[in-house]
Nucleic acid binder design. Structure first.
Lengths: 198, 198
DNA sequence: CGCGTGATTGAAACCCTTCAAGTTTAGTGG
DNA sequence: CCACTAAACTTGAAGGGTTTCAATCACGCG
């Protein structure tokens, strides 16, 4: 059952199968029903989650009670509150399953141990961090520069597969607009003969 | 002249003075006049910049020609396009001196070499990355959740010292609003007897 | 079948932008 | 040190994009 995570890591990080096997004690796998909260705001995030199947999201709730989606994580993605894990701070957000999902839990110890025994894993982990920064930067750029429509087009070009799986109001939340606005954006695009893959 | 960078690194990263001395070949220092561009959009960012004195900023220019400030870097800060350095991609933005500045240039080789000879430097570097992620996440949260006024108040609580040194239109650009809007926000705050340190 | 959640649509309100003046500030050369 | 100019900041009025609120429609699930 860890096979998917194993082949993922072996392929991406260059860690060997044997090395991975030695890390098994740091892992646990769970099947999580749809709508389950894996991380509560205010709690310290002790684990990161690798999604073997299903779909998760991270979101915050602001002072006026509105949700803001921070990240989606379909199969093959990792989702966590890095800052909370790394700095041992209470988390600012929630992590929840959007679909029933098979999830691998791994702690910071896993990463430390893996970095210890495999320098290529250490490099891989840094690549992950750098990539995360790149992605956050991209999102900031779009929030500063782009209209709702442009942000939506960007979203579907990056995550075309999520269009069908994520409720529209969550996408709106990710884009920083209301569901009503997204609906109007889509209507406008349809009028101009735009057709996302569906 | 490298003393400030040396004591900064020794104190923060736990690298020893001797180790730092051995890294000197990877460093160069320059005095840069105000308004000089250190990194051009489209160029590959080969160096990071430690600010010994003065003030720099990173900014992008969008398709309609508008500037968007990504980061300010006063003395004691590091400014760079991490993604460009790490992935060898053309940079999306510019880095420019707002004031005449004394700047230390260091390449990725410096970081690799320092990580090689000092595990505490390696840890420090990861802390830097994690911290960067935390800060970007915070900014996204504010762009999604907060009004112009809230973003401004957040800005001056985090960077009170920059208020006096950075032209207002650049702060507006950082906040994602027009200079006119920021002016009105400030007027509104003044009317409500709000007084930033000045 | 009916209920609840999500999506759509309309109208009014709101925040912020745009454009177009003015005013202030800062820097430069005489 | 003043005069001049350019840049930065302010202010007003009009406009645009997005939100809010409310009502309606569509659909999946018990």
């Amino acid at each position: 059952m860890y096979l998917s995570f194993q082949s993922y890591l072996v392929e991406r990080s260059g860690i060997s199968v044997l090395e991975f096997q030695s890390l098994l004690p740091y892992l646990k796998e769970k099947e999580i029903p749809k709508g389950t909260i894996l991380l509560q705001k205010g709690a310290i995030c002790t684990h990161s989650f690798f999604v073997e199947s299903g779909l998760l999201r991270a979101y915050s709730i602001d002072s006026s009670g509105k949700e803001h989606v921070i990240q989606f994580a379909p199969e093959g993605w990792i989702i966590t509150d890095r800052s909370s894990v790394f700095f041992n701070h209470p988390s600012d957000y929630f992590i929840e399953t959007i679909e029933t999902s098979k999830v691998i839990y791994f702690s910071h110890d896993f990463i430390n141990q893996a970095s210890e025994i495999s320098s290529s894993f250490r490099n891989y982990n840094e690549r992950l961090l750098q990539n995360h920064i790149r992605q956050l930067q991209h999102r900031i750029q779009y929030l500063l520069e782009a209209t709702a429509e442009e942000r939506y087009l960007d979203f579907i070009s990056i995550y075309p597969d999520l269009l069908l799986r994520v409720p529209q109001w969550m996408i709106a939340s990710y884009l920083g607009i209301t569901p009503e606005s997204l609906s109007r954006v889509r209507k406008e695009l349809a009028k101009r003969n735009f057709n996302p893959k569906r």
